[in-house]
Computed example of a mutant assay.
Amino acid sequence: MPEAPTAEFDAYAGDYDAAINRGLKFTGETKEYFAETRIEWLKARLKEVGLTPKSCLDFGCGTGTSAPLLVSGLGLDTYIGYDPSSESITEASKEHPDPACTFIHDVDKLPKHTLDLAFCNGVFHHIPIAARQEAFQHVYDSLRPGGWFAFWENNKWNPIVHLLMSRVPFDRDAIMLFPGEAARHMERAGFKIGLRDYLFVFPASLKALRPLEPALCKLPLGGQYLILAHKV
């Protein structure tokens, strides 16, 4: 499968967090705030659809930032982090030695038809357009029937997102997906769309307004969107 330019991510594997935080500086938050909020939001949405996942694929896991959050936040028994960057996987394995976690960089070694949940965050804008449908299919094939896919992506409708990504070296040339475009890819892979949410409307300077975000989550205002879909 054609992949994202792995050499670029190999080069940033040891400095990935610092590069991301340079881009996020404008928001007044670090990547940890966004990572933790995504998991909290996802946990609530999974509860609504009646899923208590015990196994999860983190597709495009990078250096494994989401691994401990997914394991502890969702109560996972099995976490599998996949990324085509071997240097990122090496870094993730060192940083997260939890026996529940396995990190791989060979897409052909992904489990087939067994996992409860797949998760990805800000991954597909790095995958070449011609390879995206195949990537969605890999995720679909990893899930058991009735499994769910939590697809987080940067919101192309939001102009602030474009500014933030321009500050991150490996995001400058990325091509984001509009929410409808992502949903069509997912449906072609076999997924049935469950919901679409938008999150991260208010920067730290306006954090007093964040309790309003649940009421705004259906409007395309936030910096990211979530598409939650299940395997038929």
Rank of each mutant, 00 (worst) to 15 (best):
L57E: 10
A35W: 02
K43C: 08
C61W: 09
G60Y: 09
E91Q: 12
D106H: 09
L57Q: 03
K54P: 00
D17R: 10
I39P: 06
F34C: 03
G81E: 10
T27Y: 11
K47I: 02
P68Q: 09
E36C: 09
A44K: 14
T30W: 06
L51T: 01
S55R: 08
A18K: 14
Y79I: 04
T63Y: 04
G60F: 06
P68S: 08
D83I: 04
T78G: 00
D77T: 05
Y82T: 04
D58L: 13
T63A: 14
K43I: 05
H105D: 15
K94T: 11
Y82C: 08
G62W: 05
A44Q: 15
G28E: 13
T63K: 01
Y79E: 07
A35R: 06
S86E: 15
W41G: 11
S86C: 00
K31D: 14
E95W: 02
L57C: 04
T27F: 05
E36V: 06
F59R: 05
T90A: 15
F59K: 07
E32P: 02
Y33R: 14
E40K: 15
D58T: 11
D77W: 00
L57N: 04
E32Q: 15
L74D: 05
Y16K: 06
D58R: 10
G28A: 10
D17E: 15
D83G: 04
R38V: 05
R38Q: 12
S85D: 03
S55A: 13
A67D: 08
T90I: 03
G81K: 08
A44L: 10
R22E: 06
D77H: 04
T90L: 11
K43A: 15
H105G: 03
F26P: 00
H105S: 15
G73P: 03
